[in-house]
Design a binder for these strands. Structure first.
Length: 824
DNA sequence: AACTTCTTACTTTTT
DNA sequence: GTAAGAAGTT
């Protein structure tokens, strides 16, 4: 039926002019809707264009969440919609939480509840639990995580007699994931995809889906894919949902994949009241199925769409914005957008080269401390909380961690294995899963010999064959195998005992409602009153972990991680407090998978550029801007120009995280997989507009009191005996075409206060105004946002300009050009 | 079944 | 260089 390429589904319903909307909007203003106060014209337009498709192109730091929440408030306030006529979709739970908080304050008291607000996955789970039978599942299906997925696929690969070493399960999992992102069921795979994975891709995919159905389970991709399938096959049902969600809002639209796009399009068909918010320049998740195309194509997908650009930035100072703009300008596939700010003061983006990665880490550490103590000339004091290091790849973090540990600089690494992905948490959860769903084979397999009970490969195989012969789940198979004496010795007793325990725990858990998620918010959930004598789910959880011997296992473990793991188990029990029962908790974890910890100590943040999207820091360090590392070689090899453009967007995201001070750095030498390599500065460094960059000189470089000559000796500080070849590679790095070009340009433009060949004392000098293009009083100039104007006063490099249309503004000279050069 | 050695690969990561 | 996972050993 309807498919991805079927473009004209929306054409049928032409944009309807809404007379009521204008009247109501006026009424809302008259009533003094305070959510409209303080919106700039673009934001206001995005908020007040209620009917029909709207694309809100919101650049970094332009107040999109404000606009989005104001829009929801406006929909309700004008009477166009009741809160629960609105569907608002986000990508992350964090974003959903944030929006929920902000909307609650705005929409409270307007009748019917809250908008349908959640991640794509959370909303799809709700839908799927109601209609599971339409894709052959029961409504209490389990959601598998990656680990379960891989183990399942391994079994299938082995069963198919394929060498798992040459064809690893991970790879197949990746392929299947990709297909699901593209909304491809096994039947819809193209010829090329069928041939994937040693010609078995399609067959294994189909087998995997069949196994999932047997297990009454699905993976993350299925949540979307199943709902798309259901909507496509059941138009009547789709219609119900279309009229339930009268207005749809989507955050981070540039990150949607094909399946998500199709789901949205199906739901928005008809009324077409869909407002997508996003920034094509911040699309950095192409590698996991996000289609920038979705946002680039919006106007074609939704004819008559209104496109609103939010370009006024409230986050960063002008040089930072200008530097970011100069980099992103190198991308071809853009909708086009330029950030600007009313702010006129601010630092240049700082650029510095180092001898190697360790030196870079050392320098950053010192710089952070100087910032924190307030000893940086011209700069205010920045607490550790206000500073962040953003890296391209997580392995870069190590150098910083090592250095910060030795100097005792408190830091926090964001990312890495999440709480619910840790081994001990997953084990504990597997116990809970078997207790709640005795037919959960994957969970049973995980815990049957954890802690060690003497149930090894042989015993497991016996259990599996018994289960298969009797057509029952593993747990039942194990019961039979133990009773009938198929299992021998230690295994037999251990399994019998485990089964007895599981049965007992299950009966204790049975009164508790399994899934809250099945019921809609507007339906009353029947909840049995808790008998106070009855065991709580928290006590039950503790009982399970203690009686199974799991806690003891870690208490007896003398590896350094053991205490931390016990600590985590306690955290897990604590997390249960927020739920009514184990089932509800499991559902939450399957979808949320993160755990906010409350820290109070001030710390520097270290994280990846990907992790930093949506965040901002007064001070940002961007280390490792080197060819191969950033842009990542792999990205370019695998995806060519597309890959490079995504890397460039990542650079843009990085720079635009900074509010006040942005420092980019690179190293001339770096250890890559244990091998020393000489590195070239990143091409993105070449792309930085030199007039917005301040090149710093590393300490110790040519500044060490005359001992240094050329590239030899201790010229690079750090007490290292630099070898000749090291010196050569250092020289190579600084003689690279890009670096030279940058320096030449900087010198020509006179904005570089120092370069690598000058002594270090010039490091914190103010921009040398004599070398900057000078404008005199009365001169006519052009600014790309404010237009033409006359210089009325000068002070160093700061000009006071009376603009023809925007009035008087104080600007840094490098942001304006002579009016005649601009073509006046 | 548990321990040890060897091979291999190696961005980014949410749900 | 290292960490995980598989194969080989006790």
């Amino acid at each position: 039926m309807s498919s991805y390429s079927d473009d004209d589904a929306f054409e049928a319903a032409a944009a309807r002019p809404s007379l009521s909307q204008m009247a109501m909007s006026a009424a809302a203003s008259a009533r003094g809707a305070d959510y409209l106060d303080g919106l700039n014209p673009a934001q206001r337009e995005a908020v007040e264009t209620l009917d029909g498709p709207v694309l809100m192109l919101a650049g970094a730091g332009t107040g999109k969440t404000k606009a989005l929440t104001a829009r929801i408030a406006h929909l309700v306030n004008t009477g166009n919609a009741r809160p629960n006529d609105i569907l608002a979709v986000t990508f992350t739970n964090k974003a959903a939480r944030e929006m929920k908080n902000r909307v609650e304050g705005l929409v409270g008291g307007h009748g019917v509840g809250m908008p349908w607000l959640g991640t794509f996955h959370a909303i799809c789970v709700k839908q799927l639990r109601r209609h599971a039978e339409l894709v052959g599942l029961k409504s209490n299906f389990t959601i598998l995580d990656t680990d379960d997925q891989i183990r399942l696929l391994k079994q299938l690969i082995n069963a198919a007699g394929i060498d798992e070493k040459r064809w690893p399960a991970r790879q197949l999992a990746g392929l299947i994931d990709n297909w699901k992102n593209k909304a491809l069921t096994p039947a819809k795979l193209g010829a090329a995809d069928e041939a994937a994975f040693n010609d078995r891709g399609k067959v294994l995919y189909a087998q995997y889906q069949a196994r999932l159905k047997d297990l009454n389970a699905c993976d993350f991709g299925d949540l979307l894919l199943h709902m798309v399938t259901i909507f496509q096959n059941h138009p009547d049902l789709l219609e119900q949902y279309q009229s339930r969600y009268k207005y749809i809002l989507v955050d981070e639209y540039q990150d949607t994949n094909v399946a998500q796009y199709m789901w949205l399009r199906l739901l928005a068909q008809g009324h077409r009241n869909i407002c997508c918010v996003g920034d094509d320049d911040q699309s950095i998740y192409g590698w996991r199925g996000a289609e920038v195309g979705n946002i680039l194509r919006f106007e074609k997908d939704f004819p008559g769409a209104k496109v609103v650009r939010l370009e006024q930035n409230y986050r960063s100072t002008p040089h930072i914005l200008a530097a970011a703009s100069s980099v992103i300008a190198g991308n071809r596939d853009r909708l086009g957008k330029e950030l600007w700010t009313e702010e006129t003061e601010g630092e240049l983006v700082r650029l510095i080269g180092h001898w190697d990665g360790e030196e870079e880490a050392r320098w950053v550490g010192e710089e952070i401390e100087a910032m924190a103590s307030g000893s940086r000339a011209r700069l205010r004091r920045y607490s550790l909380e206000e500073q962040a290091i953003l890296v391209r790849a997580s392995h870069q973090m190590r150098a910083f961690e090592d250095r910060f540990l030795t100097i005792g600089l408190p830091y926090r690494v964001i990312g890495g294995p999440r709480f619910y992905e840790r081994l001990e948490i997953r084990d504990a959860m597997a116990y809970f899963r078997v207790v709640i769903s005795p037919e959960d084979d994957l969970a049973f397999e995980r815990i049957v010999n954890t802690p060690k009970r003497g149930v090894g490969n042989k015993a497991m195989q016996d259990i599996q064959s018994v289960a298969r012969e009797n057509g029952v789940a593993l747990k039942e198979g194990a019961r039979i195998a133990a009773q009938e004496g198929i299992l021998k010795g230690k295994a037999r007793g251990a399994v019998a005992q485990l089964i007895e325990q599981l049965d007992r725990w299950s009966s204790l858990a049975i009164q508790q409602i399994r899934y809250d998620g099945v019921a809609d918010e507007d339906e009353v959930v029947e909840r049995p009153d808790h008998d106070p004598a009855e065991i709580s789910h928290i006590e039950l959880a503790e009982m399970i972990l203690d009686e199974s011997g799991y806690t003891t296992m870690w208490q007896n473990d003398k590896t350094p991680e053991a205490p931390g793991r016990l600590e985590n188990l306690k955290e897990l029990i604590k997390a249960l407090e927020q739920f009514d029962n184990l089932g509800g908790f499991l559902e939450h974890v399957a979808l949320i998978m993160d755990n906010e910890s409350d820290e109070q100590e001030e710390k520097v943040t270290i994280m990846t550029l990907h992790g930093a999207k949506g965040l901002e820091f007064p001070v940002v360090f961007l280390p490792g801007w080197e060819e191969g590392l950033f842009p990542s070689q792999r990205s370019m090899d695998e995806s060519g120009l597309k890959g490079l453009e995504e890397e460039r967007r990542l650079a843009y995201v990085g720079i635009t995280r900074a509010e006040e001070v942005c420092t980019i750095s690179f190293a001339g030498n770096r250890r890559v997989y244990g091998q020393w390599q000489s590195q070239l500065p990143s091409r993105f460094i070449d792309e930085l507009a030199p007039e917005h960059v301040d090149i710093l000189t590393p300490p110790g470089l040519y500044g060490g009191g005359g001992a240094a000559g050329g590239f030899g000796g201790d010229a690079f500080g750090s007490g290292r005996e630099a070898s000749f070849s090291d010196a050569v590679s250092k020289a190579d790095a600084y003689n690279s075409p890009g670096w030279k070009r940058l320096q030449e340009r900087s010198q020509r433009l006179g904005t570089a206060k120092t370069n690598l060949r000058q002594p270090k004392k010039a490091r914190n000098m103010v921009v040398d105004s004599t070398a900057t293009p000078v404008f005199g009083v009365g001169e006519r100039v052009f600014h790309k946002k404010f237009g033409y104007g006359n210089v009325v006063d000068t002070e160093g490099d700061k000009l006071t300009i009376n603009f023809d249309h925007s009035g008087e503004k104080r600007l840094v000279a490098s942001f304006v050009m002579a009016a005649d050069k601009a073509g006046e």
